[in-house]
Simulated scan of single mutants.
Amino acid sequence: MTELALIAGAGALPRLLAAALGEPFVLAELEGIRSEVVADPLCFRLERLVPFLEHLHGLGVRRVVLAGGVRRPHLDPELFDSRTAALVPRLLAAMQGGDDAALRLTIAIFEDWGFEVLGPDQVAPDLVPGAGVLTGAPSPQDEADAARAAAIVAAIGAEDLGQGAVVVQGLCLATEALPGTDAMLDFAARHRSLLPDPAPRSGVLYKAPKPGQDRRVDLPAIGPDTVARAAAAGLAGIAWEAGGVLLLDRAATLAAAEAAGLFLWSRLP
């Protein structure tokens, strides 16, 4: 019997967690979303959620980890079984809200069925850096930009909108919304010319969990791709709330930041 299931989405996080797990696990994936984990997945659809949960119980699963990016699926009314159909009002209400609302409902459903939901940091605590500057050296202007960005992220997070912001020379150039961090950084790169002084490398990407967020799911993450996009946007560095952000592929991320001349700062709130 296997007691742990990894419910995996897109991106590097599920692969890193799979490597960190010290026990056998069941890999499950939402139909249409392939993870980077090299294993045969158990595929499921939201329209058949209750039978999927029953199947996990039958396999002996008692604990689950939810990790990786998942886009909101289109639901087919004809595919619902009667018991999952009873969850439709809750599912639709949550999906019409922000990501945090949808994920809180996901956790609640798993817990209603007797599963213990673990956070990625409980499985692989080394993915969450402590406070300190990991590479580079933020300037006083960078520190001011990070503080302003942190206040902005707290404000948009309270509305369940996003977990990141880009502030350059005291000005907010972009905030994160449904399209995600990559889209925000690409937007910042395209619109840097709007700044009073767009030429010098300056500005900070800041990421943090939403206020009151259940940190077992959807912790913000930073990896080599984040560094590449931040560099392309002309930023001086990346800062985040210490203890609240996952640092993926740490060695590669630090090497990329050093090569691009960006600082990485795990900042105390």
Score class of each variant (00 low, 15 high):
Leu30Gln: 15
Ala144Val: 14
Phe115Asp: 08
Arg90Val: 12
Arg45Cys: 08
Pro51Ile: 02
Gly22Ala: 12
Trp113Tyr: 15
Ala149Ile: 02
Val133Ile: 14
Leu262Val: 10
Glu29Tyr: 09
Gln141Thr: 15
Glu29Pro: 03
Ala108Met: 05
Val168Gln: 02
Gly170Val: 10
Val38Thr: 05
Pro41His: 13
Glu23Asn: 05
Ala183Ser: 09
Leu91His: 09
Ile107His: 01
Pro24Lys: 04
Ala147Asp: 05
Pro120Asn: 00
Ala67Val: 04
Ala155His: 13
Ala230Glu: 08
Pro196Val: 08
Ala236Cys: 01
Gly68Ala: 07
Asp182Arg: 13
Leu194Trp: 10
Thr226Ser: 14
Gly114Arg: 05
Val26Ser: 11
Trp240Asn: 02
Glu36Pro: 04
Leu59His: 06
Leu75Val: 09
Ala18Gly: 06
Ala155Arg: 11
Gly244Glu: 06
His74Arg: 15
His191Ser: 10
Val204Leu: 03
Asp214Phe: 10
Pro14Trp: 00
Ala242Arg: 10
Glu29Val: 10
Val245Tyr: 05
Ala188Gly: 12
Arg192Ala: 02
Val88Asp: 05
Leu134Tyr: 09
Arg90Lys: 13
His55Cys: 04
Val133Ser: 04
Ser139Phe: 07
Ala188Thr: 07
Asp160Val: 03
Arg104Trp: 00
Gly58Tyr: 03
Thr181Gly: 11
Pro269Lys: 01
Arg250Tyr: 08
Ala158Ser: 12
Pro120Val: 00
Gln213Trp: 05
Ala19Glu: 14
Leu66Lys: 08
Val245Thr: 09
Glu111Arg: 12
Asp81Arg: 10
Arg190Asn: 08
Ser139Glu: 12
Ala151Pro: 01
His57Glu: 13
Gln96Tyr: 12
Ala67Glu: 04
Ile152Gln: 00
Ala124Gly: 10
Ala260Glu: 14
Pro24Asp: 07
Thr181Cys: 09
Phe187Met: 14
Pro14Asp: 00
Glu143Ile: 15
Arg148Phe: 06
Gln163Tyr: 10
Gly119Cys: 07
Leu194Val: 15
Ala260Thr: 12
Pro129Trp: 03
Gly180Val: 03
Ala256Gly: 10
Ala255Phe: 01
Val168Thr: 12
Glu176Pro: 06
Gly119Tyr: 11
Ala236Ser: 09
Ala231Lys: 05
Ala158His: 10
Ala233Tyr: 00
Ala28Glu: 09
Val168Met: 04
Glu111Asn: 09
Gln122Phe: 06
Pro51Glu: 00
Leu79Ala: 15
Glu116Arg: 15
Glu258Ile: 02
Leu161Thr: 12
Ala259Phe: 13
Gly136Phe: 06
Asp214Met: 11
Ser82Gln: 14
Ala255Asp: 13
Asp249Ser: 06
Leu246Val: 15
Leu247Val: 13
Leu21Gln: 02
Tyr206Ser: 01
Lys210Asp: 04
Gly60Thr: 05
Trp113Gly: 11
Val70Pro: 15
Ala165Arg: 03
Ser266Tyr: 02
Gly97Cys: 07
Ala251Thr: 02
Ile152Gly: 01
Gly212Phe: 03
Val37Asn: 05
Gly97Phe: 03
Pro269Arg: 01
Leu185Thr: 12
Pro138Val: 13
Leu92Tyr: 00
Pro220Trp: 04
Pro41Met: 12
Asp112Trp: 01
Arg215Gly: 13
Ala5Arg: 06
Ala85Leu: 15
Asp145His: 07
Leu194Phe: 03
Thr226Arg: 15
Ile222Thr: 10
Thr135Phe: 00
Leu248Cys: 08
Ile33Arg: 14
Thr226Phe: 11
Pro198His: 13
